[in-house]
Write a protein that binds this DNA or RNA. Structure first.
Lengths: 345, 345
DNA sequence: CTGAAAGCGCTAACAC
DNA sequence: GTGTTAGCGCTTTCAG
């Protein structure tokens, strides 16, 4: 365990360079308005002493941290099992890094963690927060609002009383779902089932709504709620097959769900797409391309969503420092989706 | 985007409660040595004002952050694709949370990021670091050492000149590999191939060494280097099959690799385990149980490794504050592995 | 262009 | 027990 040596301070650098603390500070922060010879001397001293500014001290006065929290409200860390988060995080990470901001990942495993997260955000460790995967009854948004931290949400939050000034980035879930179902209809299918996602999330609700937009008076038995997991897809598919053995297509709420459905369909002796056509959602490559047959699905650019979330937040922060702001407050964005045809439908 | 209101300070709370800042500070930090009526008054003021301590100010004087960085040196964020990290992170997260420490995840996507990470660590944002997935030539350990942050490594670091006081947590990769190969030998197999991991990582080298321990004079053509991915496993398996069509067993460096190998074996018409027995490493449930046939593999308790890393680090930090330390400096730990028999061997 | 001085919000001795 | 007083290391007016 590396031992921790006492770090040199601004003071020390100033002494060594024979200048004042103020001058060192200026040089360290870009060196504008300091004459070249001095800049040189200070740089040298910094180098020799291995000086690194103490961020706590700096933040205390600037009220800036150049760090952004990413809060993942997924209980039981399904987080990493699901490539979805990975991609989104990656987009976020890239954008933040490009703007020299640090990503601080806050995982919440359960109820108890909420308080801790609230404390952390309110404690002024970060300049803003990116929040994900909210469920309808989640206490997190309230906590965050109280913490008074600028926030951008991933996915449309589903509170009833839509609060002012909430910014989010979402996919056009409803439109994408419509495209998927229309595609199945275009294939001549008529008994089109839907395996929904967990309906306490807006993405699941929106996709279901899109399905209903097209299948205006669908047989209610053709709709089963899943949970966005392969296991849930299997369960739902079994249920559907039992209820409606005559179904000829399935629109699954995401690719993971579709992969489970595919497995059950195969077990039951159905051929895909001949007997039953299947469409997923997400176009999660590792999943959609590996299934048998490869999955026709609705693509959303997940990494871009992440990047965009970060960008909106940072823009909002800049606006903050720039007083009443030249630019308008950032507003929510809904990204388009595209249907990707493979072999399953 | 939630607007940020000015937060009340200790001073404000003190004024409202009619006490000194010191008293408020005491109450906020546990309230020892303050008489009940005052504690009550202060609590009330804190509540009413919605006071939350400013961490930057606190850290400036205590030199404590109650935050630990997790540095993942995996280029190109393979991080999330691999359940391995997920589990380890989870263990870490649990342990840190239990000790009221915040996890700060630092992703490094490439060379450029190293400097940024170094700066972050040296900047005194965190009390310690947990570092993963080092490759032999990684500049990160050097940076970290220079940053002077107490660190625990995940997996034995592979530097030539073994530095003093390096603490790591690792699995008994060599022993586990021996068990795996011995199991295959016990099954009566003699042409046992090995698909190694990326040999710039000690885990891959150790597993290869374990294989060699048992197969003392193995046909060198039976050994191929992979890269811990399914695609690498496929490639390697094809190569092996071309070189040694008579092989009757494969020990793969991890389950992901094994899954790729399995696919190729099936393609080639070999039955597993009848024609070729296969053993993996990791016992990554989502992988090992889903393969066809389910994988016999060497289990390592990955989550526990994560938990242990965090525990060692925190223990070290406590020792630090407790001066010369009552307990000894924490030392490295190597966890045992166990063979899990399923259908593939 | 450079330096002196005043804090940022908090904790920790040290008095009372 | 409680209050007073110094700073922690840095940025930022404000003089010069």
């Amino acid at each position: 365990m590396t031992e921790t040596a006492p770090r040199p301070t601004l003071e020390a650098v100033a002494a060594r360079a024979g200048v004042s603390r103020a001058t060192v500070s200026r040089v360290v922060n870009g060196g504008d308005g300091v004459r070249e010879p001095l800049v040189e001397r200070v740089r040298k001293a910094v180098e020799e002493l291995g000086y690194v500014p103490n961020q706590a001290a700096r933040s205390l006065v600037t009220r800036r941290h150049d760090a952004v929290a990413v809060v993942v409200a997924e209980p039981e860390t399904r987080v990493f099992a699901d490539p979805f988060f990975a991609l989104q995080l990656r987009g976020i990470s890239k954008e933040l890094t490009a703007h020299d901001n640090q990503l601080v990942l806050l995982l919440t495993e359960g109820r108890d963690d909420h308080a801790r997260v609230g404390r952390y955000l309110a404690g002024g460790h970060v300049d803003g927060a990116l929040v994900f995967s909210l469920h309808l009854d989640d206490p997190l948004p309230g906590l965050i609002q109280r913490a008074g931290v600028p926030t951008v949400f991933g996915g449309r939050p589903g509170w009833s009383g839509d609060r002012q000034g909430v910014v989010y980035v979402d996919s056009d879930n409803r439109g994408g779902a419509r495209d998927a179902v229309r595609h199945l209809v275009g294939l001549g299918r008529s008994r089109i089932a839907h395996i929904a996602g967990a309906l306490d999330q807006t993405s699941a609700v929106d996709r279901l709504d899109g399905y209903r937009d097209v299948m205006v008076d669908a047989d209610p038995r053709l709709i089963v709620e899943g949970d966005f997991t392969p296991a849930g897809g299997e369960r739902a598919m079994r249920e559907l097959l039992a209820r409606c053995p005559d179904l000829d297509a399935v629109f699954a709420a995401n690719d993971l769900t579709a992969s489970g459905a595919l497995r059950v369909l195969r077990e039951s002796g159905r051929r895909v797409p001949d007997d039953v056509a299947v469409v997923g959602f997400d176009d999660m490559l590792p999943v959609a391309e590996q299934t048998d047959p490869p999955l026709t699905t609705v693509r959303q650019d997940i990494e871009e969503m992440g990047r965009l979330m970060a960008r909106l937040l940072l823009r909002g922060l800049d606006r903050h420092v720039g007083e009443q702001g030249i630019g308008a407050a950032p507003s929510s964005v809904v990204l388009p989706t595209t249907l990707v045809r493979r072999a399953s439908a």
